[in-house]
C-alpha cells in the first residue's frame, strides 16, 4: 500500500527527515514512536503532502504510484487521510457544511453517534472543541472522507482516559473494518493508545532517522524500559 524509500524532507530549508525507508502492507497498522522533535509528525505531513514539507530525496509510493509531486488534495482523493494533532479552527465553517462539501452528509448522520458527536452538525470546525472532541472529530472526519491509508498524529494526546478507549476503538474500527481493512500509521508519544489498538509493527524515529522497527508490542516494551533507543539485535 505505502512504500517509502530513502526519503529526506526539508521544512524552510531545514532537514527534518533523512533517508527514511518504510513499508506498510494493505490492512496493516503501524505505530511511530519517538521523542518530541524526532520527525514523526513531519513524516505524516510529507506523506499527506502538506505544503511546507519539501521532499529533497527519495520517494513515496502509494499502491505502486510515485506521489512525490502529487498535490495535497489529489493525494487525499487517491485515498490518504490524516487526523491532525492540532487542527486549525475554522470560524463559521460548520461540521454539516464540511460534510456537504465532501458529499458525505449521510455518513455524518450514520457515524457521528458512535463517536459521541451526534449533536455536532452545527458546530464550527475545531472552534471551542475540547481536546477529546478534537480527536473524535478528526476520526469522524476520516470516516467522512473514507480513505484507504489513514494517518493519525498523536490521537490520544489531550484526551481523558475514558475517551482514549473510545478513540482507540474507533481507530481499530476504521482500520480493521470487516468489509476491507484499511492501512494505518499512528504516531504515539506516550504509547497509551497501544492498549486499545492492535498494531502490527512499530518504528522508532530519532533525529529525523528511523532507528528501529519491529513487532509493535515488543518494541513498545523496549521503549518503556530503555527509552527511544534501538534494541540490541
Amino acid at each position: 500500500m505505502l512504500e517509502i524509500s530513502g526519503l529526506s524532507v526539508e521544512v524552510a530549508g531545514k532537514s527534518v527527515l533523512e533517508g527514511i525507508d518504510l513499508s506498510l502492507g494493505q490492512g496493516e497498522l503501524h505505530v511511530l514512536l519517538g521523542p518530541n522533535g524526532s520527525g514523526k509528525s513531519s513524516l505524516l505531513a510529507a506523506i499527506m503532502g502538506l505544503p511546507a514539507y519539501r521532499i529533497v530525496a527519495g520517494e513515496i509510493r502509494l499502491c505502486g504510484e510515485k506521489i512525490n509531486e502529487m498535490p495535497l488534495s489529489e493525494r487525499a482523493r487517491r485515498g490518504i487521510g490524516m487526523a491532525f494533532q492540532r487542527p486549525p479552527g475554522l470560524d463559521g465553517v460548520t461540521v454539516s457544511a464540511f460534510a456537504a462539501a465532501l458529499q458525505a452528509q449521510d455518513r455524518l448522520q450514520s457515524e457521528a453517534a458512535a463517536l459521541d458527536l451526534a449533536d455536532f452538525s452545527r458546530r464550527e470546525l475545531n472552534v471551542g472543541f475540547s481536546g477529546g472532541e478534537i480527536k473524535r472529530w478528526e476520526i469522524l472526519k476520516l470516516m467522512l472522507q473514507d480513505p484507504q491509508l489513514v494517518l493519525f498524529d498523536e490521537p490520544e494526546s489531550g484526551v481523558d482516559l475514558e475517551h482514549v478507549i473510545a478513540v482507540g476503538q474507533a481507530i481499530d474500527r476504521i482500520v480493521r473494518r470487516p468489509e476491507a481493512a484499511r492501512t494505518g500509521l499512528v504516531i504515539t508519544h506516550t504509547g497509551t493508545i497501544l492498549h486499545h489498538v492492535r498494531a502490527d509493527r512499530a518504528h522508532i524515529l530519532r533525529g529525523g532517522r528511523l532507528i528501529a522497527s519491529g513487532a509493535a508490542e515488543a518494541l513498545f516494551t523496549h521503549v518503556q524500559a530503555h527509552g527511544y533507543t534501538a534494541p540490541d539485535v
Partner: peptide, 29 residues
C-alpha cells in the same frame, strides 16, 4: 486566507477553490 486552514480542508480531498469558498463562506456567516 490562512494557508494552514486551506491545507486542512484540502487534506480531506477538497480542491483549493472549493476549500477557499468554504473558508470565505464561514468567515462571512
Amino acid at each position: 486566507i490562512d494557508g494552514e486552514k486551506l491545507a486542512y480542508l484540502m487534506a480531506s480531498g477538497m480542491e483549493e477553490e472549493a476549500a477557499r469558498n468554504l473558508i470565505v463562506q464561514g468567515f462571512l456567516a
